[in-house]
Amino acid sequence: MNIFDVVGPVMVGPSSSHTAGAVRIGYIARKLLAEQPRKVQINLYGSFLATGEGHGTKKAIVAGLLGMQTDDERIPMAFELAKQQGVDVSFGEANLKDAHPNTAQLILQGISGQTIEVVGQSVGGSRINIASIDGIETNFSGDYPTLVVHNQDGPGYVSAVSTLLTEQGINIAYMQLYRSNRGGDAVMVAECDQEVPQHVMERLKQVDGIGKVTYLGMMGDE
């Protein structure tokens, strides 16, 4: 129990789950995109959709996508700031089945054409869970430096990632594997105790069968 979750966080109101949690979903999605977004489609579900307006949930998600943290006083102006930065924002309803009541689906396109689809859930307080990336189930909080590797389902990929991390003295705190189907698209999520350097990501991308490598660092904005 971190006492600064009890007395804190410093945040822009009104709701830790519907505002602060929503900022964090946007912020982490932007980090996973790893560049300034150009076009974002935000689809809301459940309580986010029903009561999001009064809680500023939409503004909060956009603020996070622009790189703001939960205590940023510019959150209420997020729409105007997005416009100024030339980010095209649109909203809709998320068509999900039996999802967590506070869920947002973010479909992002970056300035260099990178794309990512992230489903985030606000699970209580300002804590969140990233429930899927590019349609493949995941389950991580964004509290640790997190490496997300998209690979073809098959043997050797876990060992390739763990070997590279070991060489750098990086400890894996939690590791999860997901796949769409046998031999199909797979996602590996490694939550680490240390930051993963850029060159490790570059080397991973060169491994045959590894497609996209996304990384969520804890240090400032990219």
Partner: peptide, 15 residues
């Protein structure tokens, strides 16, 4: 202030 999207300290919650 909280209801109006100003910055506050959740202690223990925003509400």
């Amino acid at each position: 202030s909280n209801a109006c999207m100003h910055r506050i300290v959740a202690a223990p919650t925003a509400g």
